[in-house]
Nucleic acid binder design. Structure first.
Lengths: 138, 138
DNA sequence: CTCGGTGCAAAGGGTTTGCATACAT
DNA sequence: ATGTATGCAAACCCTTTGCACCGAG
């Protein structure tokens, strides 16, 4: 039993290219639209709808992950395993953060009687690069 | 200098009622639409646009806070100071969590050279009440 | 009397979906 | 041949905005 697989059926060029785009270095934590524009350079006929459908499928299949960072747009991440993020409020760069262990919040929730199964942590601040730039410009 | 205040000019019935709705017990972390429907019971002519404008203003004035929980909708919170949330994946209830100390993620980010100024933490799981219900039904 | 706030309705941005067709199996 | 994935465009959902009127100060 539990043969792992879930949705994946056919392998299409579109699916492969969408996965490639999310995993492409140079595009970090892309939005669906960014993936769309990237794939279109290679396959000009692909549609936005198809990009969304394939992104959903890749997430469902555990091949990538979706992170509702910021507010409105979903960001896609080539790393499928749970992890957190740091967002630079100057340059907008998003970096993966490896949190070693459950944070203080988990303890607080457990104390309140809740059972915590997962979490989403986003840190905001100024990244290493922007801190350096700021130092230089003053 | 820094005399705190920012936008607030005129006091309207609409503004007061929107604030009341967010602070009303029984409505927890309401969405803009929920606030709209609540206020409309008292002031049937209020418009959704006005609700959004007043919510924005209250947030800007530091009288309430906005939390981009889940994915699509913004939730409003009567507590204006920074804090975190627990979301029950069974009943949907959202509870404020008081995190005593900066989590492990902050340390990881600092180690990477970033300057962390704020964060957003959302814990997912099963709340105290739902855990009890589950126990009873099995 | 002023000009900021309101109501209305249309516009916007991101994401989803219905449908006929194309294509992987 | 069979039915899933695609492309297209319309629909959706939440939120924002333009504009003329209203009303707090």
């Amino acid at each position: 039993m539990t043969h792992e697989r879930a949705s994946s059926r056919r392998t299409t060029r579109q699916l492969a290219l969408v996965l490639d785009a999310v995993q492409a270095s140079g595009i970090e934590h892309p939005t669906a639209d960014r993936v769309f524009r990237h794939v279109r350079r290679v396959l000009p006929t692909i549609s936005l709808g198809t990009v969304y459908r394939n992104l959903q499928r890749l997430v469902a299949d555990g091949r990538i992950s979706a992170a509702p960072l910021g507010a409105r747009v979903v960001r896609y991440d080539p790393t499928p395993t749970p992890h957190d993020h740091f967002v630079c409020q100057d340059c907008g760069r998003i970096e993966d953060i490896t949190v070693s262990r459950s944070s203080g919040g988990v303890r607080a929730a457990r104390r309140a009687g809740h059972e915590v199964s997962s979490h989403a942590l986003v840190l905001y601040g100024r990244c290493r690069t922007c801190r350096g730039a700021r130092r230089l410009s003053e």
